[in-house]
Nucleic acid binder design. Structure first.
Lengths: 195, 195, 195, 195
DNA sequence: TATGAATGAGACTTCATTCAT
DNA sequence: CATGAATGAAGTCTCATTCAT
């Protein structure tokens, strides 16, 4: 093993954290179990992360980055604001369907943390809202999206609808196919923001 | 002791639970502190509630009942589906603005519980969706609300939008006036469900 | 067992703490072992003491009180300042000889604590210096004790000499009889403070 | 690497140990921090020292050597026992005043170690008592120092008085000038040992 | 029914020491 | 010799729950 910090090991720990937290919830997920799943000693976790809170935050950053990078890639091929929003809704939803464990982590468990963590998560979420905001601004400038309502409320509406449907799907044991709902979600959102 | 007194004590405990959980979060709210605030001994809590989880569930039922009763009262004076939805949005939002502590409990702390608790919460939430569902069904029958989209998705959209805006308000330290946003929220929702 | 805090149990814990700390030293004395010796559960210690530091402080107060009460009792029968100082030297030394475990606790282990604890110990020690100071002041007023040197330096000299000889005795495995040295100690001290 | 460089590294580690232990205390001083301050890797410390305890002992030896060498140098110019004792009191006190960090190390932190360490410290301290003992013996032979009291008790009295006053000064945040007290200390000691 | 002292499992975290590089 | 990532035992402390009174 190299004597320099091993990014593969860090990644293993994050994966284990996402797995265990998804199953047990943040407060019930123990460092002991995360270490066992990651295949490292308990102490090793503290070589890579300051404490349990830091592990949670960095796990979240890691997961969100994965989603956003995928979305950004797909957006490059689109220029129409409505198409771009459809991409976001579609990719966001498909990602969750393909990664139900991460969906549980993001939709349920992450919200089981302390206020200080939630605030940090809110900061990290700004990347998401930034992408959305730019698309909406462009749509308003091009006269395609209504300008009579605060852009942030529209952003919240889009994210809130998608988020709640995913949460609901996670809580319902993922019985339905989530991807089947994409068209409906998009249709509703579209009606709400057209000018 | 009389049965009357028992209910009063139970109620005191629930109020204390809501208060403490709002401030500290579910996992950090200790039975010891809830007992102290309620003015009873720790052991007494276990006379009225099976365990900490049971106390949380019954506290949530209690709070949701209060909100729904208020909404039901107001709905009696309305017959138009759109007006009814406006009542729901308005009352829901106003209640949170008037009771920021309970808002914190519902929007943030309640979500810091275990999966089993969240499932139970979902069950209790059905009362809310039932009210919403009946209004929507009536609207569809009267040709006022679009019928091309699953009624549950519309329900989620309405609740999701309101819920997210309240959550966002709670997390932002309640700086803005929440009630100022009601008209905008209603406007967006209306566009989305009109036929 | 009574449902009110049990002072016998508190006393048992203090005794166990003195025993274990004497043997292992403050930092190596574990709460687990103290609890085992005291015959209580680990958690019980935290019913009576805020934390490990608090347990140490209150153990020290307890031991010092025992010594000072004994000294105060004996002092009542004396009026001459020199006789009083002899009483202090004698009782202090005899107590340590009779309680070698406590001697070790006071002379060695107590000093293995954090700066904050040492500061608190210094405060508690003021009771000791107060008794000494009053005797010296009286002796100066009566012209029996030299007035050309700061009274606190004389106090330190008396306590320092006694203290160091006891410490030395503790560290030397208590081979000599400590009480045999009392006369010599007193003689030296007397020469130093006579006017 | 040359042997010269080894001694420099060993010296750096000892200096770092004294610094860190002075600030944090023995049990709270971590090998990690000592290594960082010394500018070496943690593992390197174990090339030069058997373990943490060994590092402490050898740091103490090092510091005491520095003091004693200084005292021995100054003693060469004196032949009178009283003058020699004055030199010891003066140099000991001045050294501490000039090196408050080392004073803290010797007076406070060193005493926060285990019994086994304290025993070794006692052995090393014999060098100090040896110097003192020879002066006192000479004084007794020349009829200048009282012969009715055990020489070791006088030695303890001298060291104990100086030691306690320094400890007291260290604990009082070094507000007063320590050197101002030298004359008083010497005066008290002298009265006690004159024949 | 009400009490609250007692419990003890289990949580997070630290850190001296090792050993492969 | 030097390195520093990895280890894992051990530590302190919390807290939901129980049960004798």
């Amino acid at each position: 093993m190299s004597k320099y910090k091993d990014f593969e090991k860090e990644s293993k720990i994050i994966q284990a954290a996402v797995t265990v937290i998804s199953e047990k919830g943040y407060f019930k997920a123990s460092i002991t179990e995360i270490a066992k799943i990651a295949g490292v000693a308990e102490g090793t976790i503290y070589t890579y992360f300051k404490n349990k809170e830091d592990l949670l935050i960095r796990s979240f950053e890691n997961v969100l980055d994965t989603i956003l990078n995928k979305i950004r890639d797909e957006l490059l091929c689109q220029s129409d604001p409505f198409s771009k929003i459809k991409i976001i809704v579609t990719e966001h939803t498909l990602f969750m369907e393909k990664n139900p464990q991460i969906a549980n982590f993001l939709q349920i468990q992450l919200r089981q943390s302390s206020l200080s963590i939630r605030q940090k998560i809110k900061d990290i979420m700004k990347s998401y809202y930034k992408i959305l905001g730019e698309i909406l601004k462009d749509g308003i400038n091009r006269g395609m999206i209504r300008s009579d309502v605060d852009i942030r409320i529209i952003g919240h509406m889009i994210f809130g609808t998608v988020d709640l449907i995913i949460t609901s799907w996670v809580l319902s044991d993922k019985k339905d196919k989530l991807s089947d709902k994409i068209d409906n979600i998009y249709k509703v959102i579209l009606s709400a923001l057209k000018s």
